[in-house]
Design a protein around this nucleic acid. Sequence first.
DNA 1: GTAGTCATGTAAGAGGTTACATGATTAG
DNA 2: CTAATCATGTAACCTCTTACATGACTAC
Lengths: 205, 205
Amino acid sequence: MSLRHAILGVLSAEPMSGYDLVQLFDSSVAFVWSAPQSQIYPKLREMEQDGLVEVNVLPRGQRAEKRVYSITESGEMELERWANRVVAHGPFRDAVSLKAAFFDIASSESVRAQLDDHIAYYERARRQWQNIADAIRERRAALIRKRLEKRPARDHEAIIEFKALAFDRLVAIAEAEIAWGRRALGLVDRLEPGPRSRAQGRRTG
Amino acid sequence: MSLRHAILGVLSAEPMSGYDLVQLFDSSVAFVWSAPQSQIYPKLREMEQDGLVEVNVLPRGQRAEKRVYSITESGEMELERWANRVVAHGPFRDAVSLKAAFFDIASSESVRAQLDDHIAYYERARRQWQNIADAIRERRAALIRKRLEKRPARDHEAIIEFKALAFDRLVAIAEAEIAWGRRALGLVDRLEPGPRSRAQGRRTG
DNA sequence: GTAGTCATGTAAGAGGTTACATGATTAG
DNA sequence: CTAATCATGTAACCTCTTACATGACTAC
């Protein structure tokens, strides 16, 4: 049930419409938390029912409307309660691990392609995450600026350092993924001329 | 749809009953892939329908039965096709990131407790994963031995190195998580005497 | 007028979690 | 005989994905 808290977290910085949240969750913030549009609108209604957010219906042009949600006191309390709870570690389930555990039955071409993809993905992710961490520390990130405006100046350093810390973690994970990918490519090279017996239709250069 | 392939992967080493798979998925292998019992039995029936596995119904005592599943040729082909496909990177969603991004509104006691828990979790996971990697390299792991029996000796090194590689990755990630946790604890200490103002419920001005 | 964007929804289905439910077998 | 373990299922519920659906507004 974390989409609730992701939304509360965003709204605690700034009121937004469902549409704004949709944009956020599948563009810039997509490397932090993502959610499809079909989840966001119903979830906002549900949270409204539960009193965590309240809506301000604004006219848009002549006939249309725009529902801008803001966090309520109750919503802020829920966010705070959640922030103070220890996360329950869900069951472990990781598609990459599972895949990697069966590299031995794939062709070396495919393993290389998969590793290249893995490395490319995490290089991109690392850039994104590093950019966000930098933007937070330099107070360039839009949501952070909004957030700081609402809090006393003496809290600013802690806020910035903690938010950036979350992204430092992702950067470190990305680096571990990249390093592993390169090492794995090295292993494929070492084993390559040898017997990738299960792979048919393979020509060795 | 990866439970299917996790099951096929296990059955490609050794035929097993649903019960055996349940044990496997929530004990030793739980740090690789996990699934609750309520998913496994229906999934096996479904895979049987799809011709990926076949069942051998063995008597157990006088009245009871035991359904032992083995992988079919079709199942092995599906496993191989899957092993050769590039994983689609699902949408990014990580509870720890989200939580860490809101450490600034939690009390420093709670943040410390959360980080201690994080470190303890990954220290345990690292031990598990390292043990598995070692057991594979030393050919002590039960499933690996079964697997090697079915494959020509010249493939053994590649199989072992690839399987162990998957766990090396998890060990590296665990180490990154632990290092981050310790660094984060250092940050809390540094910020500690300062103002964790939001800690108790209070109205914002 | 028309294309692109703003804006809000619904529906079907897959996958996963928690809890319930039952009974046989084996070791003490 | 009794407890632990072996063994197999079902049901309700929630979350997420994919796809469908609609219409107003704005810039050209």
